[in-house]
Nucleic acid binder design. Structure first.
Length: 306
DNA sequence: AAGGGCCCCTGAAAGC
DNA sequence: TGCTTTCAGGGGCCCT
């Protein structure tokens, strides 16, 4: 489940391998992973092109080619893009075939003799060929066109987040997964950010007070920065562009820690289902209602703060 | 417009 | 023990 930190790690690792190399040929083992255009046109347009730069937008990886075209990859759940030496053929193989990981769908043969492989077990991801920046996006990339601010850029401010949440009645967890609101968060880092901000995932987005929105804004950035530093989270299949795992899994506070002790209060982490996604949180550190002392005489809320 | 549910898919794990 | 069912989830799409 590559989210922003994982895609950023793939971008960095592939950037140092690919820039300057050319695509000599493409082996469309399962051509349907070329999402657009058809395999023939795709091959014709990318053959001979050089990689010039790699960018990331949310969870999209954008690879600039010397022709002006761009390869747009989305890894979805289990996609991998891995630069790999072309292993020598095994004795039992038919001539020309090389051993490759299961679920290898596309192979780019590179000018240095290595391969760029697109591997995807659950097959949700794929690669699209897009024209230069400013030209219309090909079908299937509508999400890229409508994507929200990069959370680690100056454009993503607490003020902007507060504005985006205003009046929204959906649970904050569901809103964080909406890529139009902020780009790059998936199930893991949405849960982690909410925990860090001490906000219950079921809270209505519009009910967050300014201090909570500020905390959430900070938490989103901090969680993503930490995850990038350790090359992302590997649970099952994620690896970077050089085949290496990320080290964030052991640093997670709530995700995949149902029943384990909260690192803050020691109570058990709970899991619920929200917006079709499993959601992990600490009911003590992320109280759903306002934190109030028991008793009748509790401080009255100032008018206008609701 | 906003919100919620479904769907695509494979393999591991849980259930019977 | 072995078969069947459930679950994992990104994001497009559709319905209300």
């Amino acid at each position: 489940m590559p989210e922003l930190p994982e895609v950023e790690t793939v971008r960095r690792t592939l950037e140092r391998r690919l820039v300057g190399l050319a695509i000599e040929d493409v082996e469309p083992i399962h051509p349907q992973f070329i999402r657009y255009p058809g395999a023939d046109e795709f091959l014709a347009r990318v053959k001979g092109a050089q990689f010039t730069a790699l960018h990331r937008r949310g969870k999209y990886l954008l690879i600039d080619l010397s022709t002006g075209d761009r390869l747009v990859a989305h890894l979805r759940m289990t996609g991998r893009l891995v630069y790999s030496a072309a292993d020598p053929p095994r004795p039992t193989d038919t001539e020309g075939l090389v051993p490759r990981p299961k679920h290898t769908h596309l192979v780019f043969h590179l000018s240095d003799g290595a391969e760029l492989r697109y591997i995807d077990q659950r097959t949700f991801g794929g690669i699209t060929l897009a024209g230069p920046l400013g030209t219309p996006l090909p079908p299937g990339l509508a999400g890229l066109g409508a994507i929200g601010p990069e959370p680690l850029s100056p454009e993503f401010t607490a003020e902007r987040l507060r504005h985006a949440l205003r009046g929204r009645r959906a649970p904050i967890k569901a809103l964080l997964l909406d890529q139009r609101l902020v780009a790059g968060l998936g199930n893991i880092y949405a849960d982690e950010a909410l925990y860090r901000a001490r906000v219950h995932p079921e809270r209505e987005g519009g009910s967050l007070r300014p201090a909570e929105t500020d905390a959430l804004h900070q938490a989103i950035r901090a969680v993503l920065e930490t995850a990038i530093e350790v090359n992302g989270t590997t649970f099952y299949s994620y690896v970077d562009g050089e085949g290496n795992r990320g080290e964030m899994a052991t640093l997670l506070n709530v995700y995949a820690r149902e029943g384990e002790a909260c690192r803050e209060c020691g109570g058990p982490i709970e899991r619920t289902r929200l917006g079709g996604r499993s959601t992990h949180f600490c009911p003590v550190c992320q109280p759903k209602g306002r934190r109030r002392k028991a008793g009748r005489g509790a401080t009255r809320r100032k008018a206008g703060t609701v």
